[in-house]
Design a protein around this nucleic acid. Structure first.
Lengths: 210, 210
DNA sequence: GTCTATATGCGGATAGAC
DNA sequence: GTCTATCCGCATATAGAC
């Protein structure tokens, strides 16, 4: 690993942290450099613009999300969905600036906008696949149409959760935010659940709603 | 009406339009003044800061939303919910900068953050009331717990819809965006619907999904 | 109420030395 | 690769004339 790679990564790490904590709009390139202890001239050597930094972070997020949603393991129980959801929501939380500042990002660069749309479409497709496997495994009872609607709703909830939590006081204070978020996404399945899957949901409810 | 009020209102109108079109972060006070054809000095006479402009817009939004959700008319059919939803989503669309830049706004001022939380809580409470009336009227079959979850999901979807549509290609291109959004919120009720309410949903589906 | 003029500072970005 | 120095432009905000 060359020194150059290392600095690049440290820039990305510091930027991610600042973007998450202060918001992209309020984070200046100078600030990133200062926090990292390097000169802004040096930073500009590695990234020509702030948008370029953001784009690389989005790219990393995409890789991570797609690694999660394309694991081809079989889905036969609610727990399998729970795991995937949890991993995805952890990633979303670690890169939470993305969905908090979606509008800013999409405006800043058409390439980022396109990448975000890709992520959404693949997320919905992956979720749809998982749900229809759950239907096949008799965990839920749902038509193809139901499953399609469900997948959209689940992805919407997952991606918007941390933003929504900001305006819903009951939604944030929590030791395990990703778990709480995953619970809320799973709640969408409630009316479709069959048999013991209902019991599992009750267990999750008791765990996440005090 | 004095001249002062008129200018104030024109500032708010221009600011709203620019916030919606360009985003708050990218809209400078100078730009608002320029678009309006007044000097920035004049604008500062009316509003000390950009946040103050935003706060007044949020206040107006709140008044409008609360006027919608506190209309005490009886809810006996899906159509009653449809109307309320449509009005709320039209308001959300007209003030769409609010939920697009929620994070920015909440950071900019604790008072705005608090106001947004108020709006959310009252929105959820109002939605819950409507849903339980629908249950009483036998339009849907849902427990109190179901209704509580449902209300949160509906408000989340309604408030985040226009943001989500930005990353979901299938969600935006539409002649009647508020109608489309309302349809998606109503979809959450699908599994709970009884009897002819199902037919009504089918009708909406055919109308909004081509 | 409204304007012009201006102070002040910060963020983005580059040049050139080491 | 990294630093220092620096330029440019824009945004916020104020002072004072009309």
């Amino acid at each position: 690993m060359t020194t150059r790679d290392s600095t690049r990564n440290r820039i990305l790490a510091t930027a991610l942290s600042l973007f998450n904590d202060e918001g992209i709009a309020k984070t200046s390139v100078n600030r990133i450099a200062a926090d990292l202890g390097i000169s802004s001239g040096n930073l500009y050597y590695h990234f020509k613009t702030k948008e370029q930094i953001a784009e690389w972070l989005v790219r990393r997020f995409q890789e991570r999300i797609e690694a999660i949603t394309t694991t081809g393991s079989k889905v036969v129980a609610l727990d399998d969905l729970w795991l995937v959801l949890h991993l995805a929501l952890e990633a979303i939380q670690q890169y939470r600036f993305i969905y908090r500042d979606v509008d800013f990002l999409a405006r800043a660069s058409p390439r980022i906008a396109h990448r975000l749309q890709q992520i959404t479409l693949r997320g919905i497709a992956g979720t749809e696949r998982i749900c229809s496997e759950l239907a096949k495994a008799d965990v839920i009872r749902a038509s193809n149409e139901d499953v399609a609607d469900l997948a959209v709703q689940m992805v919407l909830t997952a991606t918007c959760w941390y933003t929504f939590a900001r305006v819903w006081p009951a939604g944030n204070a929590d030791a395990d935010p990703a778990g709480r978020a995953a619970y809320h996404v799973l709640t969408l399945l409630t009316p479709y659940l069959k048999g013991d899957a209902r019991l599992y949901m009750s267990y999750l409810r008791s765990k996440y709603l005090k």
